[in-house]
């Protein structure tokens, strides 16, 4: 079966000389719910921009359901619904007009356009607001308006660039439920996020992008299974000169009073303390080094600057 999205050796150098993508490859199967995870500035929006032809690529190929962007642009565009990161509708237009115009640009006849506009505004909880101008909506509602708008031509592939940024928890949950349902009905979904939690809740497959490179591309399950370890920071009562021998644990001495130890899934914290006791090392306090996402990034990228 053709892939919903197939990217090969894609590069992007912006006019100011910034290389945002260093030749990435990406495959997303039909019906998948796919996450593109990465810190700010990693190149997520650039990738999405190129796929939806808002950004000119520098080199490489992009195919949407087999339609090459360079050869069958209109066919490729018809398959995609885009929910961009930044609001991009006319703030002074009523919601219904925004929906109808978008339908018009896809050549959808008026009657069908009205039907779908009403349907999706209703499904996204915007029915009451349909005659108001977009400016009057809250941030979460604006985000949902863009989802409704992206669905008006019933695309086979829905792409959402950081859809839950600035959306409160409650709305986030209902948005997730909506996307899950849409995916269950057959729409392929790609979302970018810098929250691992979001990807974990929703997605089956995941690619991690950092500094314009794909550093990991795997199933959510296998990624999570590799994350069942955590790093502890131990404050020591007495200074140490060398990293003590701790069979079964890896770690390092950060300074003479601080020990960093990775506790894997197979090992346990009490085992670690038993080992330390054997060497008469006294621990005054301990803390978790960071959250899982941060650890994951550090392991994959060596990059410590991870956005929260």
């Amino acid at each position: 079966m053709t892939q919903a999205l197939s990217i090969h050796n894609l590069t992007k150098v912006y006019k100011n000389g910034v290389t945002a993508l260093h030749g990435i490859d990406l495959e997303v199967g039909q019906g998948d719910f796919f996450a593109l995870l990465g810190p700010n500035g990693a190149g997520k929006s650039t990738t999405i921009g190129i796929i939806s032809s808002l950004v000119n690529k520098t080199s490489g190929t992009v195919k949407i359901f087999g339609h090459d962007l360079d050869k069958e642009l209109a066919a490729a565009k018809s398959c995609i619904g885009l929910v961009p990161q930044e609001f991009n509708f006319n703030q002074f237009e009523p919601l219904m007009d925004i929906m109808m115009n978008q339908a018009g640009y896809y050549g959808i006849p008026r009657r069908l356009a009205v039907e779908r506009s009403e349907l999706y505004l209703m499904q996204l909880g915007l029915w009451e607001k349909r005659l108001q101008v977009a400016r009057d909506l809250s941030g979460g509602m604006k985000r949902r308006l863009m989802i409704a708008r992206a669905l008006v031509h019933e695309p086979r592939l829905l792409i959402l660039d950081e859809p839950t940024a600035g959306v409160d928890i409650e709305i986030r949950q209902s948005m997730w439920a909506f996307l899950r349902e849409l995916n269950a009905q057959g729409t392929t979904i790609i979302l970018t996020t810098h929250y691992l939690e979001e990807a974990e809740q929703l997605c089956r497959n995941i690619a991690i992008i950092d500094n314009g490179r794909i550093v990991e591309n795997t199933s959510m399950k296998s990624l999570l299974s590799r994350m069942d370890s955590h790093t502890l920071l131990l404050d020591l009562a007495h200074p140490l000169q060398h990293m003590p021998l701790l069979p079964g644990f890896s770690g390092r001495l950060l300074d003479d009073h601080t020990l960093e130890v990775v506790v894997s899934r197979e090992a346990s914290v009490s085992e670690l303390f038993a080992r330390l006791a054997l060497q008469q090392i006294v621990v005054t306090s301990l803390r978790n080094k960071s959250n899982r996402l941060e650890e994951l990034f550090i392991r994959l990228t060596g990059n410590r600057e991870v956005a929260a």
């Binding site: 808002l54 642009l73 066919a75 961009p84 930044e86 609001f87 991009n88 509708f89 006319n90 896809y106």
Partner: peptide, 18 residues
């Protein structure tokens, strides 16, 4: 210009509109 400024021009640019 205002559709560029508000980015609503993107509504046209993502569509198959020639």
């Amino acid at each position: 210009y205002s559709s560029k400024f508000q980015r609503s021009i993107e509504e046209m640019l993502v569509s198959p509109l020639p």
